[in-house]
Structure formats: structure tokens, C-alpha cells
Amino acid sequence: MTKIAVQVDDLTVAYNYKPVLWDIDLEIPEGVLMAIVGPNGAGKSTLIKSILGILKPIAGSVTIYGKSYDKQRSLVAYVPQKGSVDWDFPTTALDVVTMGTYGSLGWIKRPRQKQKKVALEALEKVGMLAFKSRQISQLSGGQQQRIFLARALVQDASIYFMDEPFQGVDATTEIAIINILKELRKAGKTVIVVHHDLQTVPEYFDWVTFLNVKKIATGPVKDIFNDDNLTKTYGINYKVSIQK
């Protein structure tokens, strides 16, 4: 039996006493490339943020490989939504990628040559080495997303959480990103992606979770990515042509 990478039990999260996630039970097996899909306001980002301890749930618990997130931080990398930061911040692409090493450094210690080298390698991997000294506001949307991905890669984690990595990127970047995610899966990593484009789910992912405040379904794409679950999640009669 495969190990469970992330286990979520009875998770309820509320903003101002209005639940945005209600009693979520979820097991994510090790080594899957999973999409979280659901309509706007379904709580997809909230789910990720709660797993990562950024938001405090009002009930329930989360474990990463059987232990609390605080103890397993080094196993987890996170790519927030691109719009969650100010891209006019005075810093360079290389510097942003280096931030991925801060977790392993801990408080006070500064990044040195070793951390810089790791960051440069990650930049190369996402095809952004030529832009390392570019101020981040001078990058296109796709390039900014690649920088975020590179920053997650330097964390050298076992589990990657990504909040809409394909938002506002061009086709080339989308393919480059999904190829890297597939490589991660091949290397035995678990990758969890908040995703919007339902058409590409069967092509990109092997595991899927349907979410709309409550969990609708979770499992292998080939078994559960069907009109029935889509209709339950999105509330309208949904028909997609599923390429198998």
C-alpha cells in the first residue's frame, strides 16, 4: 500500500464565522500529481493554506506523513498565487528564488554561496537563468510564475502545494511548468495543484479532488473525473469530453 502523504481530518475553516470549508476528510497518497478543482469560492486556496498552517481552522487536524505540519515543514514547498505578492517590490529574480532556501537556514542565518548556487540551478531548470538579475516587475506574468516555481524547487521538498500556477501564463510556460511537475512526480514527489482549466485535468493530472465547501470526491482521474462529479461540484449540468 502506498503511504499517505497528507491526511486531513474533519477540517472546518471559517472567515468571520462563515464556513468556507466544511468537515473535509482527505487522504492524498504519496507520489500523485493531484488537481484540486471547484468553482470560485469553493475554498481551494483555503484548503491549501489551512494544510500549511497559514490559516487556523476552527476544527479538525492535518498531518503530513503522520506528523503535524510544524514538525514536517522541511518536507513541504508552497507556491502562492502570483497575485498574492507585490511584484513592484525592490528585488531581483535570483533573490526571490533564494527565498526558498530561508526555511532550511532558519532564523538569523543568511544565505551564502551554497544557497545562491542552488537558486541558480533552479533558475536554469525553469529556463530563467538569463533573467536572474532582472527586477521582478520587469518580468512577464509567465516568467514571474516560473520564478515562483523555481523558488519552490530550491526547497527540495517531498510535497509541493501550488495555488493556480497556470493563471495568466502563456502556452509555452504552461507546458514548461507541467513538464516540471511531471518530473517531480516521476521523482516520487507529491504535487498538489489548485487548477481551473477542467479541459486539461485528464491530460495533466493522475489524481483529482472535487471541492465545493465540502469535499465532493477524491481519487484517480480515470475513475472519478466524470460528468456526475462535475455536476455535483459546479451545480450545473456539466459535459466534458474526457480524453483517456
Binding site: 493554506k49 500549511l52 498552517g53 497559514i54 510544524d70 515543514r73 513541504v76 508552497y78 502562492p80 498574492s84 505578492v85 507585490d86 517590490f89 528585488t91 526571490v96 527565498m99 530561508y102 526555511g103 537556514l105 532564523w107 538569523i108 542565518k109 543568511r110 544565505p111 523558488r151
Partner: peptide, 18 residues
């Protein structure tokens, strides 16, 4: 380092334990 990180990206700072 901590000031820069949390000013630029609060979410990442929180997830890294700062």
C-alpha cells in the same frame, strides 16, 4: 532576511515557519 521575506511574501514566510 526575515523582514524582507515577510514583507514580500507573507504566505511563504508563514509556511516556512517565520
Amino acid at each position: 532576511k526575515e523582514l524582507k521575506l515577510s514583507t514580500f511574501d507573507k504566505g511563504l514566510a508563514a509556511s516556512l515557519g517565520f
